[in-house]
Amino acid sequence: MAGVTGAGRRVQPALAAGLVALGLVGCNTLGLSRSPQGNGEMSNQYVDRGFRGDMLVSRMKPVRVRLQNGWQAAPTGTLHNSADLEAYNLDENMFLVVVGENRDAVSPGNIEEQANVYLQILKGGFDQVIANQARTGVERVSSFPAVQYEVRGSVSQRPVAYLHTTVEMGEEYYQVVVWTPDELRMANADAMRAVTQEFRDAQL
Rank of each mutant, 00 (worst) to 15 (best):
E86G: 00
L119E: 10
V141F: 06
A105V: 07
V177D: 06
Y149A: 05
M169S: 14
E101V: 15
D104L: 11
Q175V: 13
N102I: 07
N132E: 13
D91Y: 00
Q157R: 08
L90F: 08
N110I: 03
S156V: 13
S82V: 14
P159C: 07
V117L: 12
G170Y: 09
A134Q: 08
N93R: 14
A73W: 09
Q120Y: 04
T76C: 12
V160S: 08
L79F: 08
G77T: 02
P159T: 04
D127L: 07
S82F: 00
K123E: 14
I121W: 00
E150T: 07
V151G: 01
I130G: 01
Q120M: 10
V129Y: 01
T136E: 11
A87Q: 09
G100L: 04
R152I: 03
F126T: 00
L90A: 06
N110M: 04
V138P: 03
N132I: 00
M169A: 12
Q120C: 02
E86C: 00
H164P: 00
G125A: 10
H164R: 09
N116V: 04
N110Y: 11
V141L: 12
F126W: 05
E150K: 03
V98Q: 13
F95I: 10
Y88N: 13
S154G: 06
V147G: 05
S142E: 15
Y149C: 06
R135C: 09
E113A: 00
R152V: 05
A87T: 12
T76I: 01
L163W: 06
V99A: 15
P159N: 15
Y162L: 04
Q133A: 03
G125T: 04
R135F: 11
I111G: 02
N116A: 00
D104S: 10
Q114M: 11
P75V: 09
Q133G: 01
I130V: 15
A115E: 04
G170P: 07
V117R: 11
E86M: 05
M169W: 08
T180W: 03
